[in-house]
Design a binder for these strands. Structure first.
Lengths: 217, 217
DNA sequence: TAAAAATGGTGAACAGTGTTTACTTTTTGA
DNA sequence: TCAAAAAGTAAACACTGTTCACCATTTTTA
């Protein structure tokens, strides 16, 4: 009757699992899901391809873990912004900018995290575990920020925080995807001068937050 | 010396090409690029797989034509909005809403159109033919609308139309991708009541246009 | 401790994929 | 009519994710 909650066998198993994930992460970060093949991965860690399946049910499951870990990172960074004591106007813009900044650092991870199967229609049902998922948590944090804005009068009083959070999230997501997928985005102003990516992210953040703000005319 | 600019052989070739594309379109619309296999496609049109390669250099090239045709459709619809005589405030919102509406009608097409290889860095160079591409034309139309807004005083005078167009495009793109990839998006307000997709599109359109508007306090 | 059971690891195979090559048939143009 | 070009094909190549039967090792149980 050992007291250890994890047996040596378990620890060994977790170690190998982690080694597989680590090797997969490196390939995935550079080449994405398509570039990551089970056979290449097996070779990298000196195992047979079939061995991978003793640790993961499928390639999808393996990749899902990489995505989940990545979203934890975004969540962490974004929470650290939400908890800051900086003025609301600045903080809300930082929030948006930070999300985009972190997301585009691992373009393959981010794109893959949202590239489930595309569904055209289907009855819109509230999926049960959403609030508990990483995406759900990120969304909740975003809504909380908007609630604060409404409560303090910074944002228009008539907005529904839940709706506004989704709209805002869509806008953040949009810029991120643009940067991830279009190599030449954003880049150019009207006078053809180049604008650094960072500056454009801030511009966009300012833009989308303005849409929420109350007018102090 | 025939006067016809297209020989019978050419016309026959184009016909078969079109038949291939048509068969491909149907599968692609339902299952996307992954569901569309050359072998299945060949079977559908009673040809051998290798025959496809007499008409298209690769599967990518074939799919690219489907995407291009789709983007022409978006462009057309969106132009018809831009040319309307309705008041600017309404028209600009319609523009955004229409883009999203049409785009989500063919989710696989839209998602694929933006899913080039994800590139993390790379020096930002203005790609030569962008203005002439379908995406480039859509962007130009959008910028034109914003220029009109700035000129008439509806939008803030200090905004750079080129930058604002990119920001606005990113926001439109974001909502589209959210709807395309997340089956349960948007759906729920704070009180847990369902909001129809169409209503949310209008909400988002209003939101992003507000970010551009001058304050008339 | 001995037997039984579960686990870890493997090579080979299955069913796919996009694509190329060598070859035959058909169509075209002079 | 006859050479050249184009259309079409079967078979193979080089991949992919995944499964299966099998062996070795380790862990658990009697």
């Amino acid at each position: 009757m050992t007291v250890s909650v994890s047996s040596p066998a378990e620890r060994r198993r977790n170690k190998i699992r982690a080694r597989i994930l680590s090797a997969a992460e490196q390939v995935f970060a550079r080449e994405g899901a398509d570039g990551l093949s089970i056979r290449r991965l097996a070779e990298n860690i000196d195992y047979s391809p079939a061995a991978i399946y003793k640790y993961f049910k499928s390639k999808d499951e393996l990749v899902d873990e990489l995505k989940e870990t990545f979203f934890e990172l975004i969540l962490e960074k974004v929470h650290s912004i939400a908890d800051r004591a900086t003025p609301f106007a600045e903080r809300s813009r930082d929030y948006v900018a930070t999300y985009v900044r972190i997301a585009v650092e691992k373009p393959h991870h981010y794109a893959a995290a949202f590239a489930g199967e595309a569904v055209s229609e289907g009855p819109v049902e509230h999926e049960p575990g959403f609030e508990l998922s990483k995406k759900g948590q990120a969304f909740t944090a975003l809504r909380g920020m908007i609630e604060e804005g409404v409560a303090t009068g910074a944002f228009r009083s008539e907005i529904d925080p839940s709706l506004a959070a989704k709209s805002l999230w869509a806008s953040m997501h949009g810029l991120t995807m643009m940067i991830v997928h279009l190599p030449t985005f954003p880049a150019f102003k009207a006078d053809q001068t180049v604008m650094p990516r960072e500056d454009f992210i801030l511009f966009h953040a300012d833009q989308v937050i303005r849409g929420l703000e109350a007018h102090h005319g």
